[in-house]
Amino acid sequence: MIIDILAGAVRGGTSIMYAGLGETISERGGVINLGTEGAMLLGALGGYAVTAETGNPWLGVLGGALAGALLSLVHAVLVVSRRANQFASGLTLYFLALGVTALFGVSYVSQQINAFTPVPVPGLSEIPGIGPILFDHDPLVYIAYVAAPVIWWVLFRTRVGLLVRTAGERTEALEVHGYSVQAVRYCATVAGGALAGIGGAHISIAYANSWFENMIAGRGFIAVALVIFAMWNPIRIMAGAYLFGAALSLASVLQTSGIAVNQFALNAVPFVLTLVVLAVLGRRTMLAAPDELLKVFDNSRTT
């Protein structure tokens, strides 16, 4: 049963990890996107619809990424160009995405698709314990293993990453070297949305293999909270995502093994966990926050 829970943690944590990595990029650049949940919903429906129409789940992943990117592009226009309030914009876009996906998703409810199936890694999946936990999953899970260190490397070891971090720390320093803060923030926000979209697509075309209304069920918000616990570090995002994955998989594993626990109580576990972690870490995590994060970039400050 432990192995079932851990394997479920990896599978269930993957979508949160993609969204958390995306939100890390966006917030490192100085933009908080509470619309992450919405980007995941659009990604889930986009991924499902494209897979249903083309029969190819890889195109579905692409569709999910584009759908998430599109929503975040709207967020970027509002908060970077129009300098609207980041929280208001993010929440509004979430509700918009909730409505839009409910409306356009109706025809896909209970439609069958050619979903991703687990691809055991030859050899590695035979290892007792480790094998079933880590190496008997769909391809998006394996890509996620690589995505976290790659994104860490991009953020901390490349020029593009340096520009993103500077946009989130001190905009004057970016401007004085001739870069556009707005351009950097657009890129970071849209890239973050694309990753959230992939996370959403993972739920619909690899995890649940179906589409239904509000199927993300708060994972996007958990991802936003996770970014704070992880102190804006992609490697910690990976660890944290699997922790929440474990909380999510607990419910289904207990159910299949016949232990009677109230379903609603189990669904609440990840959120209670979030509150506990927030309470324990308190303001400590905020000390690691990028300095510009809570300010909306103000272009009129030229001196």
């Binding site: 490349t158 020029r159 971090r165 500077t166 720390e169 001190r170 320093a173 070297h177 990028p290 300095d291």
Partner: peptide, 21 residues
């Protein structure tokens, strides 16, 4: 015009466009 959260080297890298990594 330094970024407090970055290292001295990273701050200098910002000023010296020199390859993608």
């Amino acid at each position: 015009r330094l970024v407090p959260a970055l290292t001295v080297a990273e701050n200098i890298a910002l000023a010296l466009p020199d390859g993608p990594t």
